[in-house]
Design a protein around this nucleic acid. Structure first.
Lengths: 228, 228
DNA sequence: TTCATAGTTCGATCGTAACCGAAGCATCTC
DNA sequence: GAGATGCTTCGGTTACGATCGAACTATGAA
């Protein structure tokens, strides 16, 4: 019976609501302080401190001290993907905690997932890249084509330099709101970064939401047309 | 803060050691009765009954009644993949529960993962299929080539009929012992089934282990040579 | 029918862990 | 230095849930 790794420890770490909320907040990709995470978890600083040390001890979080602040992030992309896939499963089983509010539609439209774009816009972007032949999709796998390489170069993404990083260029990531794949990996990160750099989109503080400016919206929709 | 699906519920379900052991036992792919799962979890039948109804209520398990038995399985492949990916993460963080025993090496060599082959042999099989050009690998994605289609036909796997099922033909599944991908999906299932049908391999009761006969071992190694 | 086996429900116990107040460090500012 | 801010540690309370014994229901066998 006692075969293999112990998933109960990790499950228990994620299984506490306060910790789950903190982890979900960190899925936003930003490094957060203990105080911010305490707020995200809806608990006091003392309690958060104890939770955070447990999460770190369990290998789910990484921290770096900076002056008198202590910044926490998810330990690595593997953790982010686990959290995201649990969200997908939770959504498909109807485990929801959101009370539908004004903020919710915005979140479904575009949000941060670790470091790339998710939601309707994230899914649309990947669909469009695949339809235009910039990205090849085989099952769950994604690869940039030579056509995509030059197309992306035109909008300021240098595939060559991205390739040199150890992180995979493309990854598909299951979107919990759309239930379809969006683009992760270093390319997904670079694309979102370029949108923000161009002023097309910006992040809403304290939230995973990403909002597009009217002009950015127009450009985005033109760049990634819907084909059906 | 209250954005998106609630991962805490699922985490908490997996987070109890007894439940985690039951889920891990079900990763073996077989449908198990409440009594068997109680043994797997190391608890009494009453306690198991309560756990099982929670797991079912949470959407992680499916059950079917058959006479006076009640058979439980993982709800679907998504759950199996979550469990397996948590095992991968747990292994990489050093959350182990196995006391190294004589059974352990066998488990690392070949075992069941839901319904396909995992462990050293599972990884080797996929590597060999990719190296021989039977399967194309792009990132995490896998696809059978036309060459692969005819090669597999020769060993009695009919890709055409597998394609008609709704389940994906190929999937990569991260192996927790090898830390590399092995072949899942309906093709992975069909391959393992054919090995067992030919008498090359058989399952060990009450375990995830798969043992190969001397002849089966020879055939398997010949069929999927190591290229390095 | 009677008996055995599979499983659920109830009730009570018990342990663990989440929680916060208060006090203690550590780091920055003035 | 003094004071403020960020965070941790300690101690004690509380609540939830895992556990099992016992009683109950359901299915199958004799």
């Amino acid at each position: 019976m006692k075969e293999g790794p112990d998933i109960a420890q990790i499950g228990a770490l994620i299984g506490d609501p306060a910790r789950a909320n903190m982890l979900a907040a960190l899925t936003g990709g930003r490094a957060l302080t203990a105080t911010e995470l305490a707020a995200a978890g809806g608990i006091t600083l003392q309690t958060a401190s104890s939770h955070l040390s447990k999460l770190e001890g369990g290998g789910l979080l990484a921290q770096r001290k900076q002056g008198r602040h202590r910044y926490f992030t998810l330990a690595d992309e593997a953790v982010a993907r686990l959290i995201e896939s649990m969200m997908g499963l939770a959504a498909s089983r109807g485990h929801l905690r959101h009370q539908p509010g004004p903020k919710d539609p915005a979140l479904r439209k575009a949000r941060i997932c670790y470091d790339h774009l998710a939601g309707d816009y994230g899914v649309r972007m990947l669909d469009s890249l695949v339809a235009s032949g910039s990205i090849d999709a085989i099952g769950d796998g994604l690869a940039v084509t030579t056509k995509g390489e030059s197309d992306l170069q035109c909008i300021g993404i240098d595939i060559g330099s991205l390739k040199s990083s150890r992180r995979p260029l493309c990854r598909s990531c299951l979107d919990w709101s759309e239930r379809r794949a969006h683009l992760a990996g270093s390319l997904g990160k670079a694309l979102l970064a370029s949108f923000m750099e161009k002023g097309w989109a910006r992040r809403i503080p304290e939230s995973r939401s990403v909002v597009f400016s009217p002009e950015g919206d127009r450009q985005f929709l033109k760049l990634f047309p819907l084909q059906s």
